[in-house]
Design a protein around this nucleic acid. Structure first.
Lengths: 346, 346
DNA sequence: ATCGTTATCGGGAACGTTTGCGTAAAAATA
DNA sequence: TATTTTTACGCAAACGTTCCCGATAACGAT
């Protein structure tokens, strides 16, 4: 099927004018007589003329579109973030093109390359859990393609970054568990080299340290696929339950990990919080409906998306090369519910 | 910031060749000597040449991108559907551009126009709940822009459509409630003119009829914003609870409506299923974690996205105008849990 | 009558490709 | 050696715009 679009030439031909005159009339240039303008405008309206954005892009070397790369869209955090991204992009006249890495480094590289070969004015990325090497970003970035990282960032690339306060979020969650009397706190997280994993692990450790609880690395389990593979999560839980010194609480880092853990705990028939208390990073707004209602660390996903987009567009539209970069850190929210209820004094 | 991209001309200049030779060498044309080819290919590789997709689009009058319009992305059903869309689009070499109508007719019109002014080869749309008039789609469609509707469809436009079997899904859910002894079944749904609302309402009515239960329109409440506005949902529930002849069960149509109802029921301190049994259309995979675990009608969202995308791409790539259109209907899945447990015989 | 202004418009290059056509040199044939 | 064919490449148009330069006419000023 094809589209037979009307061009500026057609208008010119129909009206006996040159394309340049038509173009100028359409843009309301002062050097076109008002009669001609009116003529052109009316005719354009009549035949429903729309300028061809591709031709414009070619000329202006701009696309008015930004690319998003995330691991998966069917994820509370990311869909909320993308919502924020779209809200800003739409207002600023940018289209949003997105694709999913599915936590694969290979696929991420392909996408970046594909997207960035100038079909996009800038990139918003949250790296995949497999990504340890950032040269595919670095190359494009050095060539002048604006990139802003959010959530899972590439520390070694010097550009804008937007994250939640993962350290503090993790610290608060862990501290909350400790305050409620839990001492053997397990931690299930994503791939260890991910920025978010590291930051959350540090927050967790710091809370233990502040409360004189010894860190035990047997209590920390990594799910390299970020909770997308159920078995990986169940395995991690089983390892924790097999420990001689039993864990009494669980702090999960990551949206998918948290929800998958809840499913696994249900399958393993563990009672929350009696067998084990649970708190986790997640952006589902369904936590209050759980049995028991789930305590969560909530990230300002929508705002993260918004801020990242604003920074990216400012980079894109900046005349001079940008040299001052910001690392915005947005606060998380600790929502306490029954899944971390105090240990009953028996 | 700008991008100083290397073009085919640069290669030509550097190698003392014409642009046409370079172009042909790059595409491996037979009329270029193998030495020249090798020379060009190696140089292109060295300076990391990427063809400018915009220039290509202008020439081929194709973009290799498809547009998606949904009401919101932060919704289980739509994010799963978009996942399916992206999976197919990626494999077929298409970019995915998406935007949200936020259930606004006004915004939907603007987006369609914006997206469709040839910056996109085809459109995948699920209409907003405010949309009663489809001329904004019809216009573009008649001009030759391929459009495929999914989920919320425009019946009056003759093109491919992909939906879940809403009638049967609703029928099954209602029938299940009846089988479990419920007789006064309330129904909360979206805007009445939405195709999905109508189909689900019909399924609900049919199940009542088959079981000789009289239909009572006081038991049907419409939430025009599809559950996005909490108060609207709470209001609908309150109306239902105010009925003299009490409702004993609730069938909710729509992802957001279902989850928002659950929140409202919790706030109103209704016990499920004792005060009221609940089953609803929703694609959350967290239903089993609810208190009580929620019975649901699940749509094959991912597959719907996939099928719709395949149909759209086949339209885009068809040489001759397409005249035979399909309306694919995919089966829903009834998942029974405790929220619809049989009435206890007191 | 000549000149500089002003208003209004057209020609054509440019953005980066692809591709039909033309053509020189080299190779093959007569 | 003369002619034809093949090989290998360049020129230029085209896709739809914008915009720099001119160009033309009208008109008042000199």
């Amino acid at each position: 099927m094809k589209f037979e679009p009307v061009t500026i030439k057609d208008i010119g031909k129909a009206l006996g004018l040159s394309t340049s005159t038509v173009s100028r009339a359409l843009r309301g240039s002062y050097e076109i007589s008002s009669e001609t303008k009116k003529l052109v405008l009316e005719y354009a309206e009549k035949i429903n003329y729309r300028p061809n954005p591709i031709a414009l892009s070619l000329k202006e070397r701009r696309n008015h579109s930004i690319g998003i790369i995330v691991c998966e869209i069917a994820n509370n955090f990311f869909s909320q973030a993308i919502n924020g991204i779209e809200s800003i992009a739409y207002n600023r006249g940018y289209h949003v093109i997105f694709s999913q890495s599915h936590e694969s480094y290979e696929r991420e590289s392909v996408i970046v390359d594909h997207l960035a070969s100038r079909s996009v004015d800038g990139l918003l990325v949250s790296v995949s859990s497999e990504t340890k090497d950032y040269t595919h970003f670095k190359q494009l970035y050095d060539k002048g393609l604006p990139i802003v990282f959010f959530d899972r960032i590439a520390n070694e690339i010097n550009t804008h970054k937007v994250i939640a306060d993962n350290f503090k979020g993790a610290y608060d969650a862990t501290e909350h568990l400790i305050q409620n009397g839990f001492k053997r706190i397990a931690h299930i997280t994503s791939a260890p080299y991910l920025s978010i994993s590291e930051e959350r692990l540090e927050g967790y450790k710091e809370a233990l340290r502040k409360n004189n609880i010894e860190f035990d690395d047997k209590l920390v389990q990594y799910c390299h696929h970020g909770g997308m593979i159920y078995d990986e999560v169940e395995e991690a839980l089983k390892k924790i339950f097999k420990l001689k010194q039993k864990a009494d609480a669980l702090f999960t880092a990551g949206d998918r990990i948290t929800t998958t853990c809840m499913q696994a705990l249900q399958k393993l028939e563990k009672k929350i919080p009696d067998d084990i208390a649970v708190i986790g990073f997640t952006n589902t707004n369904l936590g209050e409906l759980f049995n028991p209602p789930l305590s969560v660390v909530r990230q300002p996903a929508f705002e993260i998306g918004q801020v990242a987009t604003e920074l990216l567009i400012s980079m894109i539209e900046s005349k001079r090369p940008v040299t001052e970069f910001e690392s915005k850190v947005l606060q998380t929210e600790l929502i306490i519910r029954d899944s971390t209820a105090k240990i009953k004094t028996k």
